[in-house]
Amino acid sequence: MKKKNIISLSIALAFLFLATTGLLLYFGLKPEFVTSIHVLLGLVFTSFAIFHIKNNWPSLKVYSKERKEGKIKKEFLVAAVVVAVFLLGAGFSLPPFAQIQHFGEDLTRGGGGRKGGRVEKTSFNEIVTNKDKQGKVIQLIIQKNAEVITPVIAIWTADTAGNFIDNIFVPAKTIEVSSGEADKRHALFEGEIETKNFTPAMMQGWQSATKDTATNYAEATPTDNFFLDTKTKAGDKFQLMMEVKDNGKTELYKGMVDLAKGNVIALKAANGSLIVRAIAELQ
């Protein structure tokens, strides 16, 4: 058996499996066995590649330098520049490298139209609060801006004068991504997050308005868009209030409910940018 043949064939087979598992990882399919195969075969590929380079070192020198003058060839410079561009682009998350890097994951997780070269998520979670409360049924659609990663949201009702009536949605927990993470979306997808208990001080607008600081949703605010089924003891005319906080920015959204004029209300904020759409329908 020829050693060179074994090395070449091993590299070819390892590359085949690396390419397959690499595509699975790119599209966000990350079961443990795929990751294990990719890592272990990566080590095999690297080991045999070292032997391959060693065996072909004379040829590589010919590709890189002129024999007589000893000058570096243009081909080597072109290859070096291409590799440097990819290293810098990927390392500093420069466009279009950042968009390309996460396109597969975003596509697999579900998306519709694109914004800024990235697929926007259009998936919705369905949650319920105030299930055992008597009162009017409210169905809310909350669609956040694609740039909002780990929002904290509190929703409540108030009378026309702004006096608190009841809570619609108050999460018991919050999700935090380390400030040192360059890509918070990727950290969230990988589960590199920390869950903390919600405290009223996190939502100062809601805290100053509410007379009931008890939470009514056992988890954190969904990181995806969501449908909310809930109930309120408010009358036929009241205000829906929603405070949204993300990445140090806070916005207050309001909608005036008057069932004599209609049962569908849009919540809006002055120069609001965290929420794309917040629509309530009363049953």
Results as ranks from 00 to 15, higher is better:
Thr35Gln: 08
Phe189Tyr: 14
Lys231Arg: 12
Ala161Tyr: 04
Met1Asn: 12
Ala278His: 00
Ile165Asp: 00
Ile279Pro: 00
Thr250Ile: 06
Leu228Gly: 06
Lys254Cys: 03
Arg67Val: 07
Ser8Asn: 11
Glu120Met: 12
Asp229Cys: 01
Val276Ile: 14
Ala278Gly: 10
Ile7Arg: 05
Lys144Ala: 09
Lys233Met: 05
Glu243Gly: 03
Ala218Met: 03
Val83Arg: 00
Ile165Cys: 02
Glu176Ile: 13
Ile168Arg: 13
Thr232Gly: 00
Gly135Gln: 05
Val82Gln: 03
Leu23Phe: 07
Glu243Pro: 03
Met256Leu: 15
Ile265Gly: 06
Ser8Ala: 14
Arg185His: 15
Ser47Val: 12
Gly191His: 11
Lys249Arg: 11
Gly191Ser: 08
Ala172Arg: 07
Pro222Asn: 12
Gly235Asp: 14
Thr210Asn: 04
Pro96Gln: 11
His38Ile: 10
Lys196Gly: 02
Ala80Trp: 11
Ala214Trp: 03
Phe51Trp: 14
Gln239Phe: 11
Asp246Val: 04
Leu259Pro: 01
Gly117Glu: 11
Ile50Trp: 06
Ala172Lys: 13
Ala98Ile: 13
Thr213Pro: 10
Thr250Arg: 12
Thr108Ser: 14
Ala19Gln: 09
Phe169Ala: 00
Glu120Leu: 09
Leu228Thr: 02
Gly135Asn: 05
Ile11Phe: 02
Ile279His: 00
Leu40His: 10
Glu69Trp: 06
Ala201Val: 15
Lys136Glu: 12
Gln139Asn: 15
Val83Leu: 14
Val83Asp: 02
Thr230Ile: 02
Leu94Gln: 10
Lys268Cys: 04
Gln101Cys: 00
Pro222Val: 06
Ser123Lys: 14
Asp106Val: 05
Thr221Asn: 11
Ile50Val: 15
Val148Ala: 01
Gly70Leu: 06
Trp206Ile: 10
Glu181Ile: 02
Lys237Trp: 01
Lys65Thr: 10
Gln204Ala: 07
Lys121Glu: 09
Gln239Gly: 02
His52Asp: 09
Glu181Ala: 14
Val152Asp: 15
Trp57Asp: 03
Pro222Glu: 07
Glu176Val: 14
Val83Phe: 11
Pro200Ala: 13
Ala14Asp: 05
Lys231Ser: 04
Ala154His: 05
Glu120Gln: 13
Leu94Asn: 07
Val177Asn: 01
Ala201Ser: 14
Gln207Met: 07
Leu23Gln: 08
Phe189Ile: 01
Asn263Ile: 08
Ile193His: 03
Gln99Arg: 05
Met241His: 12
Asn247Met: 08
Glu281Val: 13
Lys254Met: 11
Val82Thr: 13
Asn197Val: 15
